[in-house]
Design a protein around this nucleic acid. Structure first.
Lengths: 137, 137
DNA sequence: TTATTTAACTTGCATATTCGAAGTTAATAT
DNA sequence: ATATTAACTTCGAATATGCAAGTTAAATAA
């Protein structure tokens, strides 16, 4: 990967500084989506070519991983890695900022209140659940 | 602004989901840069056309504002608005993630330690300083 | 006073990236 | 045997980006 600089913000942007990558992470993290077609059916209408490309890049950078679904072996299941789960605090801040400044937000008010008033608890309980669902046991 | 959805994460991405916007915010927030040519001279080599476009969009969405420099009246000074200062927690999480996973990071280790161990204090003290420097008194 | 420099853009064009529609492959389900 | 589901690939068109050059207006230097 060609890096413009080793500024940590730039490093983050090189990994997910585009309009689509974090929507896939959102689906994995907060919407229990684990399959290609579920990402494809999201509200924001990603195209198959962009979706395929982003999934590939996320896997290459170790943020997600693919595995055969335990039920149907032809089906591919996507999981967050520890590096992907580490994006949780950032994602929460994205929700807080967007939920605060979009007058028509769909953000859950309880979630916003929790994020504002009991952030540590929200982060740790969500992280625990993600580790159960995504990391090998 | 055409919005793909009112998901708060999508709302955030519509505002700064690209490779350049948050680098301008970084310069304003952490590097004391307040002028066009200072942003232009950043390590990441933004082109003038993209820089001009992003400054315009950030102003239109109320994240930054322009004003005449108090010293030279021909000079334009950029400031963060409250909506821009509200990006501070998000920016700190970008620094933490990037600083954690880039083996060659330039991130300041003290800053990372503070963000990990005394986050509230780091946020509030930085916010206070930004309010002094950027908001009208 | 004239010339040069600085600052903040704007424009035009070549290149690169992204998009959307359609096609492909392989494994089920009927 | 046929249809459907899932996960992609491919390709031309639309869009965004990068680069060089040009513009404007004020400030400083000769």
């Amino acid at each position: 990967m060609k890096m413009r600089s080793h500024c940590p913000i730039n490093f983050s942007l090189e990994h997910f500084g585009d309009k689509w990558t974090l929507l896939i992470i959102r689906d994995l993290m907060f919407k229990d989506k684990r399959h290609y077609n579920e990402f494809f059916e999201s509200n924001e209408n990603v195209s198959t070519s962009v979706l395929g490309d982003r999934l590939k890049q996320l896997e290459e950078s170790g943020i997600i991983k693919k595995e055969a679904d335990s039920v149907k072996k032809s089906r591919i299941k996507y999981s967050l890695t520890p590096k992907g789960i580490a994006l949780l605090p950032l994602m929460i801040e994205m929700i807080v900022w967007g939920g605060t400044f979009d007058t028509d937000t769909e953000a859950n008010q309880d979630f916003l209140d929790q994020a504002n008033n009991h952030r540590e608890l929200l982060v740790s309980s969500t992280r625990e659940q993600l580790e159960k669902d995504h990391l090998p046991s």
